[in-house]
Structure formats: structure tokens, C-alpha cells
Design a protein around this nucleic acid. Structure first.
Lengths: 232, 232
DNA sequence: TCCGACGCTTGATAAATATCAAGGATAGCC
DNA sequence: GGCTATCCTTGATATTTATCAAGCGTCGGA
């Protein structure tokens, strides 16, 4: 890795409490690479080789089965992916590809494990990151098992609205096809879901959504912090 | 905890590599309790107080939202639940109740965290358990996003069949209402799904299922080890 | 400027799944 | 034995979601 990138990486939650010498050793072995958009980084079924940390850009996690494909999640800075596979020394359960030009830190599995053993602060940070990812999937799973497609969309809009500062306008972070897959529906259905939400003050203009009646939208969506909050 | 139960607990994967004194301290603080069937152990939204380890019996994890309820998973010996909430010091995302009379080891959160800090072997065991739970949910999530209800049922039958020694007969481990919720469908739909599988050699007699044409069933189900294998 | 590719939308239809209502089997209990 | 509660199944129907096909708009390249 280039020394110019060191401070940036050092300040990430995952590494900031690490011992200096352990961090140096970890970084010595790691690669910080920039990938173009739409590039496949890993494929499900492959054995875990590197822990991936997204530094810039955005990475899509997706999975395939029976000829179908579904977006399982999106990783933005500063998030990791396939941490569980690395720790268990198992194969990847999901594939990953860049959505945009992205900078990714790649740390060989054996070095992650060595640092995990050697550095208590790193071990604790890893565990918190892992627990966070786990809880995120549980929430996704609750979302899809307990809500209809329209409720999922409504809640997602409310969530993005909050994330973006409650201005009455939401900018969709991904194209609609990706949004649809992430929400567990087809693109056609997403279009129709937006139409269904029109009476609740949801106006669509490309990737910009206006939310004109939060009260009505909240009434329909019934947001639940045990599903929609990302931080807890 | 009663001293009579000590060896049994000591031999669990989570504890067997622990230092003697650390194990003693942990066990000193823990409770081994037996609960009757259908008893609520924790409720989603409550702050994490104990790490739960199922020693005997069976515990159902479930969640509610918008007036709906869904079974999120089942924990059998020797599995833990709500480990992530304990480690993150957060609220539970799921509720839990016993399915049968069950023996559960309750370890106060602060003692788990202390042991995690003090004992490297315990920390590693915890991480492996957490990573395992995480991967299990990812698989559940893939199952529901990538398969139809009938495919989910077919694959579940194949999985139980393998677990039970491939005798051509499967004993359902839970009643059909619970199976339906676990598989993300209504009880009525489960009944119909069984009927749909009849031409594939699936014969239902109460909780006993005969699988008379594994080739046909496999052809329909297309099992995928990245979804159906529990160990990796 | 025109063209074509692409992403999105819409309509028509089909398939999957849920709901509501009723009926049967089974098991525990008096 | 008969009663009752519970669970499961079945049928009829409604709702939700997907599929297929076409059309519309935009954007970038020739």
C-alpha cells in the first residue's frame, strides 16, 4: 500500500485502536486497490482469500440460485464484506461487484487472523463489525418476512429521507433496477409500488423522490426501529 | 449453577478451550435453568441482559411487525442466541420462546464481556459462533429471496432427510404451523405445497414424510450447498 | 442530427401466495 | 364413549407479485 494512504486507513474504526506495530504488520501485507465500476471482485463459492474493506465508492453484494439473481446488500465506506467467511476460513456465500469506481483495501486472510490473535483492540473491533453485519442481515430478513413490497419501499424511502437530512426530498442512492432487487421485487413492481404510494404524497421524478405527506407515509409504512435503524 | 452440571457445560465448544480460572469465574455468575414449553424467554426491543445457551430442548426465535409474526429460526443444543446483541450492548432484534421443556444457560452480559477480554480462546470461540450465526441468516435470506415456497419446502425436506441419515423417511422436527412460518408461508400454503410435491414422490403422513423419488425431488429443488449446508 | 441502446414505465395476463370459511382428523379429558 | 379443543386440510376467492410484450424517454455515439 502507498504510504500516502496510510493515515486515511489508520483512522478507520476497525484499525484506530490497534497497536502501532500490529497495524504496520497488517498494512505491510495489504493492498489498496482502485477498481472500475461493474467489476466482479469475488464470486460466491470461492474460498476466502482477502478481507475487503471499502474505502471509497460502493460495492454490491449479490447472490444467484436457480437462474435467479438478487442483490443482498450494498457496502459503502467504511464497511467490510465477507468478514465471516474470512474468520471461519470458509467459502464466500455472496458475490461482490463494484457499482462505481471504488477503492478497496484487501487484507490477506492469514494476516487478518494473525492480527486478530495478536491485537486485542483489533479483535474487539472485528467482533463489533461482525455483530453489526449480522444484525443488519437479521433486519433485512425481518423486513422481507414481515412486510409487503409496498411497505418495504415506503420504509426504505423514510430511512433514506432521514439519512439525507429530512428535507422533503430523497435521492435514490442506486438505480431503480438495483433498488428493486434490494427490496426483493421486480423493476416493474417497483414502478407500480411508487404509483401506489402516490396518494401518500410520494412523487417520483427520476431518482429524485419528493415526500409531501410524511404523516400519511408513516401511517402506511409503520416504521420500526428494530428493522429500519441501521446503527443499533 | 449446580456442580453436577459443570462437566456437561465445560465440554461445550464455546467453553472447552477456556482457561480453567476464567471458566470458573464465568460459571460462577451463570444460571442453568429449566423452562417449561411455550415460555417466553426474551422479547424483541429489550436490552440484552444474558447470553443464552440452549443445553437441552429447543428455542424458537421469532419477530413481530405490523401485526404479523414470523418464526426467524430455531436454536437447538448446543447453540447460543442473541450473541450479537450481547456483544454490541444493544437491544434484542428477536423474541425467543421455548418449544419444549428446555434447559438454558444464562450468562450475564458483563461476565461474557469480561471473559471475552480475559480469555483469548473464549474470544475465538465466540467469534466463530457469531460468524456461524451470521452465515446461517445470510443463507436463510438467500433461500427466501431466490426461491419459491415450493422450492424452499423441497430443499428443507432434502436437508432434514440428509440430517436424519437418508432413510427415505423424514420426521418433521416441528409442527406444520411452525414449519410454515419458518419457511415463510402460511399453514394453508404449506399443505398445498406438500400436495404439489406429491408427483415428486413426497408422501405425507402427519409429521412423517416419505421421499420415494429423490431424483425427481432433487431435480425440482436444485439444492445449493451455499444455501442448504449448515456446517460451512 | 439521427440512431440505437438502455432504463424505466405501462398494460395485459399469469402465477404465486394469502385470506376466509368450512370441514375433518386426532388427542386429551371428563 | 363422547365432548371439545387443536391442528391440519380443502375449497373458493382475493390479493400480491411476476412475466411478457410493447412503448416511451433519454443519452451518447456515429
Amino acid at each position: 500500500m502507498r504510504t500516502a494512504d496510510l493515515p486515511e486507513v489508520r483512522s478507520l474504526g476497525l484499525f484506530e485502536s490497534m497497536d502501532e506495530s500490529n497495524f504496520d504488520a497488517l498494512v505491510q501485507a495489504a493492498y489498496l486497490q482502485t477498481f472500475p465500476a461493474q467489476l466482479d471482485l469475488i464470486a460466491e463459492g470461492d474460498p476466502a482469500d482477502f478481507l475487503h474493506v471499502v474505502i471509497e465508492g460502493c460495492v454490491e453484494l449479490y447472490a444467484r440460485a436457480n437462474g435467479r439473481e438478487s442483490t443482498m446488500g450494498m457496502v459503502r465506506p467504511v464497511g467490510t464484506f465477507i468478514l465471516a467467511a474470512v474468520l471461519k476460513d470458509a467459502v464466500y456465500l455472496m458475490s461482490a461487484r463494484t457499482c462505481q469506481k471504488s477503492k478497496v483495501l484487501l487484507i490477506p486472510v492469514e494476516d487478518v487472523r494473525r492480527a486478530f490473535r495478536a491485537d486485542e483492540a483489533f479483535a474487539r473491533a472485528i467482533v463489533l463489525e461482525l455483530a453489526g453485519c449480522y444484525r443488519a442481515v437479521v433486519k433485512e430478513h425481518k423486513d422481507i418476512k414481515l412486510r409487503t413490497a409496498i411497505e418495504r419501499l415506503a420504509n426504505r424511502l423514510i430511512r433514506y429521507h432521514r439519512d439525507q437530512g429530512e428535507t422533503g426530498r430523497v435521492e435514490l442512492p442506486y438505480d431503480k433496477r438495483t433498488m428493486a432487487s434490494l427490496l426483493g421485487m421486480t423493476p416493474e413492481n417497483l414502478s407500480r409500488a411508487f404509483n401506489t404510494l402516490k396518494p401518500y404524497g410520494v412523487d417520483v421524478d427520476g431518482t429524485t423522490i419528493r415526500l409531501n405527506d410524511m404523516k400519511a407515509l408513516n401511517g402506511l409504512a409503520k416504521p420500526n426501529h428494530l428493522i429500519d435503524d441501521r446503527t443499533t
